[in-house]
C-alpha cells in the first residue's frame, strides 16, 4: 500500500512525458514475485521482457544465468502468471533471444551513450545492477532525471 502511494505520488509529480520515461511497475504488485525475484538482483519490471521470454525464463530457474534460482511449484506458478500478465506489449523491442534484459533492442538503445568505463566501474559491476545509476528503482521508476552516474576515482 505504501509502495503504491509512493508510486502514485511519483506519477502525479511527474510531467506528461512520464509514459515515455522508461519502464514502470504494474499497478498490481505480487508479493511472491517481489521477494523471490528481488533477492539476488532487483525485481525487474515485467514490462522489460515479453510474455514468451518470461515463460522460458521461469522454465529454467535451476540454471538461471549460471545460478540455481529454483523455486517451489506454487511460487513459480504464481510468479509466472504475474510476469506474463504484465509483460511487454511492445513486441520485438523487449524480446531477447538470450533472455537477458540487457540484450533487448530497447535496453541497448536506451544505454548507447553509457561509456565502457562506466560499465566497468566497481560501483556498477554488472549491467543488472540498475540501482547503481537509476536511483528510483525501488519505486519501479527509471526516469532520466533520477539517473546519477557513479564515478570511482582510481
Amino acid at each position: 500500500m505504501k509502495n503504491r502511494l509512493l508510486l502514485l505520488c511519483g506519477l502525479l509529480m511527474a510531467s506528461g512525458t512520464v509514459l515515455a520515461d522508461g519502464p514502470r511497475l504494474p499497478r498490481e504488485l505480487d508479493k511472491t514475485w517481489l521477494e523471490e525475484c528481488g533477492s539476488c538482483h532487483i525485481a525487474f519490471p515485467p514490462s522489460m521482457l515479453t510474455a514468451d521470454n518470461w515463460r522460458r525464463m521461469m522454465g529454467g530457474l535451476d540454471k538461471h544465468f549460471g545460478a540455481n534460482a529454483s523455486l517451489d511449484a506454487d511460487s513459480a506458478a504464481k510468479i509466472s502468471a504475474f510476469l506474463e500478465r504484465n509483460a511487454s506489449s511492445r513486441g520485438q523491442r523487449n524480446a531477447s533471444s538470450t533472455l537477458r534484459i540487457t540484450d533487448t533492442s530497447w535496453f541497448v538503445h536506451e544505454h548507447d551513450e553509457v561509456s565502457p568505463a562506466t560499465w566497468r566501474d566497481p560501483k556498477v559491476k554488472s549491467a543488472a545492477n540498475c540501482a547503481a545509476c537509476h536511483t528510483d528503482t525501488d519505486r519501479g521508476l527509471y526516469k532520466e532525471r533520477n539517473i546519477v552516474m557513479p564515478v570511482t576515482r582510481r
Binding site: H41, I42, F65, G66, A67, K123, V124, K125, S126, N129
Partner: peptide, 14 residues
C-alpha cells in the same frame, strides 16, 4: 568475511 556485516552478490552487486 564477517557474517554480521553486509555482503554483496558477486554477479549482480546487489
Amino acid at each position: 568475511e564477517r557474517p554480521n556485516a553486509e555482503g554483496s552478490h558477486v554477479i549482480t552487486a546487489k
